[in-house]
C-alpha cells in the first residue's frame, strides 16, 4: 500500500564495465527472496487464474476438473454478480475521485506555507498507519444510530429529528462507506501529490505571475500540467486498490444491508469461504482483473493520446 513513500528512484548511472563480471554471484543473493515469492505469490496467482476455469470446491482432496467457460456463463446470468460489480464500480470511482479532489486541496494547502503544519501533517498521515479494521470501527462508532456522534451533531444543529441508521439503511449505507473509504485512502494520495507539487518549478510560476496570470490561471496552466504524471499514477493506483478493497467494508457492513454494499471482493470472499465454491470465486477474481485492466487501459490510453 505504501508505494508512494518509496525512496526516489535512483537516477541512472553509467554502468561500470567490470560490473558484468560480478553478475553470477548476484543471482544467489536473489534466491532467498525468489523462492518464497514464487511459491506463495507467483504460483498461487497462476493457479488462481486457472482455478477460475474449473469447478473446484472447498473441502479436502475433492477432485475437480476444467470446465471451460461454464463459470463465466454462470456469472453472466448471476444477478448478484452484476449488482456487486455495479456497486464496486460506483464505490471505486467515487472514492478515487473524491480522494483525489480532497487530497489535491490538502496538498495545495500544505504547499502554501501556512502555519499549523505540525498539526495537519501527522493528522494527514495517521489513517495510513491504522489497520483497516480499526478505521472501520472508528467510523462505526461515529455512525451508530443512538450512541453515534454524527446523529447527535445533526440533531444538535436541527438538521434531523430522528436518528438515522446510516449503515443500516439501504440507500445511505453505500455513501456512508464511501466517506470512510475516502478518509482511509487520503494519506497516500496527499503525499504523492505533495511530492509532485514540491517538484514543480517555482520559476514558471513566477514568470506566469509576472505576466499577470491569476492564481486559478497559474494553477491551470502551470501546476496542473506539471503534476499530470503524478496524478495519472496515483489515481490509477487508487482505483485498483479501491476496486480490490475488502477489510473496511467487510467490518462496516459485511456487504449489507440487503447486499447494498456488496463489493466484488466481498462477494468473491463469500463465494469462496462462505459457500465453498473455489472455482466460481476464482472466476469472479478473473472477471475483476479484466474489468480493472479494461478501465485502466482506456484511462491510460486516453491520457497518452492527449499528451501527444
Amino acid at each position: 500500500m505504501a508505494v508512494t513513500t518509496a525512496p526516489a528512484p535512483p537516477t541512472a548511472r553509467p554502468k561500470a564495465k567490470r560490473a558484468s563480471s560480478n553478475q553470477r554471484p548476484m543471482w544467489w543473493l536473489l534466491l532467498p527472496s525468489l523462492i518464497p515469492v514464487i511459491a506463495f505469490s507467483v504460483y498461487p496467482l497462476l493457479n488462481g487464474i486457472w482455478l477460475g476455469f474449473t469447478d473446484a470446491r472447498a473441502g479436502y482432496q475433492v477432485p475437480f476438473a476444467f470446465n471451460g467457460v461454464d463459470n463465466y456463463q454462470r456469472l453472466f446470468h448471476d444477478v448478484f454478480f452484476w449488482d456487486s460489480f455495479k456497486i464496486g464500480l460506483i464505490w471505486a470511482f467515487s472514492v478515487t475521485v473524491l480522494q483525489f479532489l480532497l487530497s489535491l486541496g490538502l496538498a495545495l494547502l500544505l504547499n502554501a506555507g501556512l502555519r499549523f503544519q505540525w498539526l495537519i501533517r501527522p493528522l494527514a498521515l495517521i489513517p495510513w498507519a491504522m489497520p483497516s479494521v480499526i478505521v472501520a470501527i472508528l467510523w462505526k462508532l461515529i455512525y451508530l444510530p443512538d450512541a453515534g456522534i454524527l446523529n447527535a451533531f445533526l440533531r444538535g444543529i436541527g438538521l434531523i429529528d430522528t436518528n438515522i441508521n446510516w449503515l443500516g439503511s439501504f440507500n445511505l449505507a453505500l455513501p456512508a462507506v464511501i466517506v470512510v473509504g475516502v478518509w482511509a485512502g487520503m494519506p497516500q494520495t496527499t503525499i504523492a501529490l505533495l511530492a509532485g507539487l514540491q517538484n514543480t518549478s517555482m520559476d514558471l510560476h513566477e514568470a506566469a505571475a509576472l505576466d499577470g496570470a491569476g492564481a486559478w490561471q497559474r494553477f491551470r496552466t502551470v501546476t496542473l500540467p506539471a503534476l499530470k504524471p503524478v496524478i495519472i499514477a496515483i489515481t490509477s493506483l487508487d482505483f485498483v486498490w479501491n476496486f480490490n478493497s475488502f477489510g473496511l467494508v467487510y467490518v462496516l457492513t459485511e456487504g449489507g444491508p440487503g447486499r447494498s454494499t456488496m463489493l466484488p471482493m466481498l462477494f468473491a470472499y463469500q463465494s469462496a469461504f462462505g459457500s465453498g465454491e473455489f472455482g466460481y470465486a476464482a472466476a469472479l477474481g478473473n472477471a475483476m482483473v479484466v474489468v480493472i485492466m479494461a478501465i485502466l487501459g482506456v484511462y491510460l490510453w486516453r491520457q497518452m493520446r492527449e499528451a501527444n
Binding site: S41, Y43, P44, L45, N47, G48, I49, L51, G52, A56, V240, F243, N244, F246, P264, M265, A268, Y269, A272, F278, A281, A282, L284, G285, N286, M288, V289, I292, M293, L296
Partner: peptide
C-alpha cells in the same frame, strides 16, 4: 492489480 481472492484460494 490482481485481487487477493485469486491468490488466497491457492
Amino acid at each position: 492489480v490482481f485481487p487477493f481472492v485469486l491468490i488466497v484460494i491457492p
